[in-house]
Design a protein around this nucleic acid. Structure first.
Lengths: 341, 341
DNA sequence: ATAATTTTTTAAAACGATTTAAAAGCCTGC
DNA sequence: GCAGGCTTTTAAATCGTTTTAAAAAATTAT
């Protein structure tokens, strides 16, 4: 096992009897270098097994080819898909994705952002943790870390943003239940500190008001955004005075937890009580869950976020772009519409 | 908006009237620098908002603090969890995770590995794509990219490995069905080119043979590792001559697809036909699915993989380590054991 | 041939840190 | 006041590229 030292541009240059400048230019497909020289260089590189050192290069160019990808919970299928799609788009353009699962922790997010800067990242796709304020974000831009906000916007940030029309989605979901005749509709889940969560609840409230239904605070239940939490809280939801006949879940995870809990109690979703979710993750379409939900463009969001970043890297001073994807109701059994119609 | 140039060590040094060496040593908490000098340096750094440039440093040290994390499908909940846990462990040690979703594509995997080297990654946590041979892996080590194989081993690679006892798991699952009286047990799913998949099927075959049951090739069905594929193939499974009374799924994704398809056909899992999966992903524990499955240590695997890598970085020449996590059967309704017992 | 162009190549200065051997300071105790 | 032994600090080389202005070579025009 020979411990041969790393080959460098200089070695290639020496072997070929040219300058390092020539080799460098050849590698970068510069038009300054003669075609036959380039071929010579490239074949020599292959021959001796040289590998380019991007760090050395980026020290000069200032660009690293790396992009941060931070979400608060990528085991959440919604984010898994968004991330998968973003990663794919980034990879197609030859960029690497630096992953961060921020666990809704502001310190973790800050450490990650700082690390991104230390590593000379070119940009960041960020779904900010709850509690992120403009002040923490503004430095990103001045620091030279172009950022696209994903799913969760930050008031006053004025950054590129791509996300869902949360308000509309929940208007849609709630209205659907109202149209089915429900008058007492509970809303479960959602950390309200995030803008997206507030919007979701607003959509729910809008629908109630528009249809002349009262907004009863006792029908609002908060819980962490995963199924187990929803499952746990459900008995409480059902045990209030004049309990809801329908439930809107903050997300499919919540709604599926509700379904699960209902079944455990011997209740039949869609018959005894109506349930609607949001996100349309894979699990909701199974024949055993058949969750009525709102479909959102998960992979499109990831792709568009990456694409916005590319554009910003091209043109740092363009005005911030925004893209809000439309959502649509997907009616399955859990809302009982199949029975009614 | 003043476009102030990047602050460097040199600027800090100049401001403080010391040398860059002192500043560098202070930043790195070297004992060579006097305590009060270090404090001076650190406070100045905070004051002027200097950020460390890791790329410049790594050019000399050779270490980047970045680790690759490559799986073939991280939307698969099993891998999502493994990755989440690996990322967390890596982050705790101050390392960044470079993500790659290889989509079972050898070229993508190769490009990623090459990029890792170009970027001076310190190591790699790899679940190799189907078809990965020793030849493609060996360069990693000589190239200075210490690698831990995760979940899927590669014959002859002789690398650090952490994964499941696949064979045992499927022995467990199959034996359980046999004990419940089943004689015709189908096996669905699994790309057989991966070692882990072969092991799974071996476990199934072992159990049959050990219990004097014939291995019927017609009970083996291949399909992609996701629920939709399983759902699609199920009717075919049920329509063979003397159809199976039980099904072992290659994974929970497969088994859940089977459950879904059964329900669509009006059949009751656990009563009309028994189903067992493997992985114990969240979805299988819901009250509406209640999938009997084999639990595997997803987050432990991610964590241990990271930990193996740390050890190897510490001590590059230690003999390869292996860790196979034990699995255990989790009996729920889908296998019908509740009815029988 | 020579001059005028155009095409290629190159030298050398970056980029922003680390590292090491040697120099400089600072204490001892005699 | 100084030899000897600490503790701190520093100068300078280094890592592996890019980049630019200028030199060299090749081509074309005269």
């Amino acid at each position: 096992m020979v411990q041969k030292k790393n080959l460098t541009l200089k070695d290639i240059a020496k072997e070929l009897g040219v300058s390092t400048a020539t080799v460098s230019l050849a590698i970068n497909n510069s038009s300054l270098v003669a075609e036959k020289t380039r071929l010579l260089v490239l074949s020599k590189i292959k021959e001796v097994g040289y590998v380019y050192n991007r760090r050395a290069a980026s020290l000069i160019t200032g660009k690293s080819g790396m992009v941060g990808l931070a979400v608060h919970d990528f085991t959440n299928p919604y984010f898994t898909e968004v991330c998968a799609s973003a990663e794919k788009t980034l990879a197609q353009e030859g960029r690497m994705s630096l992953l961060c699962n921020s666990h809704e922790s502001l310190p973790l997010q800050e450490r990650f952002i700082n690390a991104l800067i230390e590593h000379n990242s070119d940009g960041l796709l960020l779904c900010p943790v709850v509690g992120t304020e403009v002040e923490q974000l503004q430095p990103l831009l001045t620091r030279g870390l172009p950022t696209v906000l994903v799913t969760r916007d930050v008031d006053g940030a004025n950054m590129d943003f791509v996300g869902n029309d949360e308000r509309f989605s929940f208007h849609l979901a709630t209205r659907h239940l109202i149209n089915l005749g429900h008058k007492r509709i509970a809303f479960i889940g959602g950390a309200l500190d995030a803008k997206a969560a507030r919007d979701r609840r607003s959509g729910y409230v809008d629908a109630l008001k528009l249809n002349g239904l009262p907004v009863d605070e006792r029908l609002l239940f908060d819980c962490d955004n995963h199924s187990e939490a929803a499952e746990k809280i459900l008995p409480e939801v059902l045990s209030i005075e004049s309990p809801p006949t329908a439930i809107v879940g903050f997300s499919d995870l919540i709604a599926l937890g509700v379904l699960s809990a209902l079944i455990a109690l011997g209740l039949e979703p869609g018959k005894d009580i109506a349930v609607v979710g949001c996100d349309n993750i894979a699990e909701s379409s199974r024949h055993y869950s058949q969750l009525t939900t709102v479909n959102v463009q998960k992979s499109q969001i990831g792709q568009m976020a990456a694409s916005f970043l590319f554009q910003r890297l091209q043109n740092p001073h363009m005005p911030p772009q925004r893209k809000i994807f439309e959502s649509e109701l997907i009616v399955r059994r859990s809302c009982g519409a199949y029975r009614v119609s």
